[in-house]
Design a protein around this nucleic acid. Structure first.
Lengths: 351, 351
DNA sequence: TTGAAAGCGCTAACAT
DNA sequence: ATGTTAGCGCTTTCAA
């Protein structure tokens, strides 16, 4: 058996009675080797339980197939799905997947991108919306340029490139269209007082949803003042608290459009706690269609954003046509999933 | 600016007018270097936007700090939390985190472990219960031995070591105790007809829960036939379907103990669809206490298994005391979280 | 204080 | 058909 430490190609060569070159050749399989020696080598490798040293391989071969996903957290159902899509697509091509979480900390994001560069990731996928300020723009420009100059590629998933000239691939959903559609759904059901719960000024994804919401309101002939945006941010807890607060006063609304399904979950609970029913008393819609949205009580009407597909698309596009991928902008479609959380406003309250 | 490809230490050395050795020294910072040269080198590195090549570094330095998590999927809230715990604890120590998903496929698991070995992961964490057959036992024994012989470490999270002599660290919850406790909670509320929804014979985690459930029943003086185990496996969908089927016949139960919270989610929906109310008509409890369990309608009474802590503990213990970690077995405590999904059985139905 | 040089494990010419 | 050898980028003796 091997001494301490990993078995190297040399030990395999010795045991098989051949040179390291021969071992390398049969292992990589891209070179004609007589079956006889081939078997000898394989047998030796197996006996020693040899595993190649990926570092040495990468060093000489110019890096290995590895993609890095960096996201705020993996416990958000939406992000988790994106990560799963990335991992699945990568794995299907024999690529490895490194993950890093930032907790929303820009400094940490920078460190992680740096780390991924050191590791030689050929694809760095940044997932999730962010507040887009000058610091952000500068950071992303730097990532893109640095990655690009070393032959790697930056992919922005669900966030925009600060500048179209930046060598980054952008893959995202049309948040504005999705928000517009679902607001329209609420409007069609007769609602006029619709509050948007979960704004986060500066966050590109949320801002776009708010824009879609306002546009839909306007298109239905409502005045700008009809828009009621509560900037409570995302998350179950935020949704719960904000909804609870909304419920104490005189209600100026009959429906709520939650910024995402987690906010909707919190809002639903606050409504139930207030002794009100959905959709009889208040209609609620969400965004993203996380798997559990179907099991909410009542099942949630929401906008389906195929998150796993977003992740898959990110790596597929980036890997398929690397040249074209730089600077490209892909928008994935979304659609409404109608379930049971929307009804006509309670009679007497429709305005 | 750099030519095509990554900037190397040599280019930095040239620009700074020193040797590569000097650059290496200031970069690693573990060697006295005069401030003057130090600054020169730093400036050059910065100007070139140099990032070290982790492969070269690992090659000479004998591997790098990397932990690998392999799990069935990341979109399960429970697994996602474990993964987050692992990543967080690893990151806090400056370690990298590689993830791989198996989709429950043993063959794939084997490939991934192999890959992680090639990458030189110093910790391979296998997460989640599995059906424990002979093939599994053999596989794990091989992983452990192989990893151990190359100085790496195997951690089993939420699954048992097939043999106590195997050099693997086991970190898991006491499933039997948790199940016993929550079954007791149902029993105390007056329920006698309790069905366990989500058995998966051969799966160690589920089997333990079923055992705890049976033990609690027995302890309350109920005959063995009182146990009603539905082996529908895990998942929202399975829970929904199985519950729906259960609801068509004459009900022999007043409460359901779902194998995990996702099963509970599906069951809750099936109950609502049948026009029944929880907990008035049927009480429901889950397992794991995923974040969304609090937002279920009604909020779910369940067993809290601190998943993120499980992940953190796995790396903490493995890294803290490597010697002792081999063959160690850590059991993390769980406790019941009482919310609103349990009530006394409807009068006239309590037996 | 700094440089030269020897590898780390592997692959890919280049020889034989 | 197979062996020899020159690096890949870096760290680390060993010299100077």
């Amino acid at each position: 058996m091997a001494a301490k430490g990993r078995v190297t190609i040399r030990e395999v060569a010795e045991r098989a009675g051949v040179s390291v070159a021969t071992v390398s050749r049969v292992l990589s399989g891209n070179y004609p080797v007589p079956p006889a020696t081939r078997t000898r080598v394989m047998r030796a490798a197996r006996a020693l339980d040899y595993v190649a040293n990926a570092h040495a391989r990468a060093l000489v071969g110019g890096g290995r197939k590895m993609v890095a996903v960096v996201l705020r957290q993996v416990t958000s159902p939406f992000y988790a799905q994106v990560a799963e899509g990335v991992e699945a697509e990568a794995a299907a091509r024999g690529w490895l997947c490194l993950v890093g979480t930032t907790g929303g900390n820009p400094q940490r994001e920078l460190e992680i991108v740096q780390l991924m560069r050191e590791e030689g990731a050929r694809l760095v996928i940044l997932v999730g919306g962010v507040v887009e300020d000058d610091a952000y723009r500068e950071r992303v420009a730097h990532y893109a340029q640095a990655l690009d100059s070393s032959g790697a590629r930056l992919v922005l998933c669900g966030r925009q490139a600060p500048d179209p000239d930046i060598p980054a691939l952008v893959v995202e959903f049309d948040n504005e269209a999705g928000a517009h559609a679902i607001t329209g759904h609420l409007l069609s059901a007769g609602h006029r007082g619709i509050v948007f719960l979960g704004g986060l000024p500066g966050n590109t994804a949320l801002d776009a949803r708010v824009a879609g919401y306002r546009a839909a309101l306007a298109q239905h002939g409502l005045p700008p003042e009809a828009a009621q945006v509560v900037d409570c941010g995302l998350g179950r807890t935020a949704g719960h608290r904000a909804m609870a607060e909304l419920l104490v006063g005189t209600r100026e609304f009959t429906a709520v459009f939650a910024g995402d399904d987690m906010v909707a979950a919190g809002a639903l609970r606050a409504i139930a706690e207030a002794g009100l029913r959905v959709p009889d008393d208040i209609s609620v819609v969400g965004y993203n269609d996380i798997p559990l949205a179907e099991d909410f009580n009542p099942p949630l009407t929401t906008v389906r954003t195929p998150a796993e597909e977003l992740g898959r698309a990110a790596v597929r596009i980036a890997l398929h046509d690397p040249e074209h991928a730089a600077g490209a902008h892909h928008v994935l479609g979304t659609h409404i999933v109608v379930r049971d959380s929307v009804a006509a406003p309670p009679s007497g309250r429709a305005r």
